[in-house]
Design a protein around this nucleic acid. Structure first.
Lengths: 276, 276
DNA sequence: CTAAGCCCTGCCCTTACAGGAGAGTCAAGC
DNA sequence: GCTTGACTCTCCTGTAAGGGCAGGGCTTAG
């Protein structure tokens, strides 16, 4: 250490692994001030001691510690032990980010899975536009019964999804407890099939019984559902079936999670349980 | 939809959950252009249709999709299905970030653990400045034997740490195979205690045998180690012990992982194995 | 003498808005 | 008609940590 062994900024850049730009930036911020600066030319000259500081800054930057905090640490710490408290704080910060991204990946996965499911179901039901009778399997659902207007249905789905988003295992459905159409005080229950039983305040989690149903897939917007209902009710009447409440609608394809989509492409399955 | 039911920007902000600032920004970027803009006043008027787009943008922004990509999606997609490819791409991007932060948390954890260990060891050895004889336990190490200058030791540690960083389980040590001091072609082996056996190309992973040693903790910089060596060798000579190679140095406290620290505070344990 | 390689400062660019200044607009109350 | 308060407009600046480039100065080798 007899001579300061001055580095030019380029040489120091190679020695420290920091870019020239970064070095100038750190100089400006006061984090890493060169040992000497030529008054005439403005040329920076870095010393061996600068190299230690540079290594420290690099190590901290690799952990994404912000420059402001590095400045504080440089001002207050000489030893690694002094900065344990800063490191712990920063770790907590990183952990927060980590959780944040875990959450995002989880949510985007949900969306992707949901949309893939929609795609699958649409393929499956392609061309099935006939009235049919079939056995509907029992299914575990979480429902939220409402006496309200039909249009509030959407907010019901939103509430369920918010609380059980992670456990949703199928297409949204709605149960109708009125035997007839009502505008303002309809009695219905939006629900989602879920993966496993549990508790959720305000939600009714139970298994819908399986049953034999008259079914019809209705294509298009919801305001034309009544025509499909007319068809399927006429069919049931013809056959002399009595209908069990609640009736069900399954939204094979409705508004997406991101796009509302084109209502002409909506697919809704009407299920009328046949009284045994 | 007889009337566009125009929202003022404030009302639209409340309806959509986007800030006024954000709405103006989206307008400027062309993502969400209000249904009408008053020529005179510049007042924006938003429509019901705008609300759908706003919901879509909000959903995408919550997944941290960048605005540029949202613009592309808005230009090309009408249905959720169309954007599966974008979502998957974005998910990959998020997953990358996730891994990145996992790596950071892992590394900062290493640093914290290491420094806590240093702190513990320093407390333990506080005031122990006497020559002692004791049994040294066997220990599993990864070493990198070098014939070089002593000062290259550091790069040896760096190489080992880079490859086995995750498995390091104790303080850095160095084995010396020369019975005497050599400047340029010294024969020595930096090593780290590690957690479990394994393979690493170029590294010698093995268990150092336990042995009875004459030990002395040397405080201060490495260039004064020779005085401590003189003391401990004189002691061994007095007792008539013969010394087994390699001798060992354990760096209880040396330069930290972040700060170089003050050499006056360094603690180095010299271990001379006694030939049985 | 000139060309190459360094170095300097200063300006603009990146993301997705937030904050604020200064000015114009709107509806209601007096 | 005037005022008041709530709203709205545009424009500017700031964020983190530099990257990229322009225009110009320095030094040294051929």
């Amino acid at each position: 250490m007899t001579e300061p062994a001055p580095f030019s900024i380029g040489a120091f850049s190679r020695a420290s692994g920091l870019t020239v730009k970064a070095l100038r930036h750190y100089h400006e911020r006061g984090l890493l001030v060169p040992a000497r600066v030529d008054r005439q030319t403005g040329y920076r000259a870095y010393s061996q001691a600068n190299l230690d500081t540079a290594a420290m800054i690099r190590a901290m930057r690799e952990l994404e510690v912000p420059l402001d905090e590095i400045a504080v640490i440089l001002a207050e710490c000489r030893e690694d032990q002094d900065l344990l408290v800063y490191l712990k704080r920063h770790k907590a910060h990183l952990a927060t980010k980590l959780e944040h991204y875990q959450g995002l990946v989880g949510r985007i996965d949900q969306v992707i899975n949901y949309e893939q499911e929609v795609q699958r179901v649409m393929q499956e039901h392609h061309g099935t536009r006939e009235i049919a009778e079939r056995e509907v399997e029992p299914v575990l659902v979480a429902g939220l019964r409402m006496k309200s207007r039909y249009s509030d249905c959407g907010s019901g789905f939103a509430q369920i999804a918010k609380r059980l988003g992670r456990h949703i295992a199928g297409k949204a459905m709605c149960l109708y407890y009125d035997g007839e159409y009502r505008e303002d005080d309809a009695d219905f229950e939006p629900c989602f099939p879920i993966r496993k039983g549990g508790q959720a305040e305000g939600l009714d989690i139970r298994t819908l019984p399986g049953c034999r149903c008259v079914t019809l897939v209705h294509p298009g917007p919801y305001d034309t559902l009544k025509y499909s209902y007319a068809k399927v009710l006429a069919y049931a009447n013809d056959k002399g079936y009595e209908i069990d409440l609640p009736t069900r609608e399954v939204y094979l394809k409705g508004p997406g999670m991101i796009f509302k989509g084109n209502p002409k492409k909506y697919l809704t399955e009407i299920q009328l349980p046949i009284k045994a």
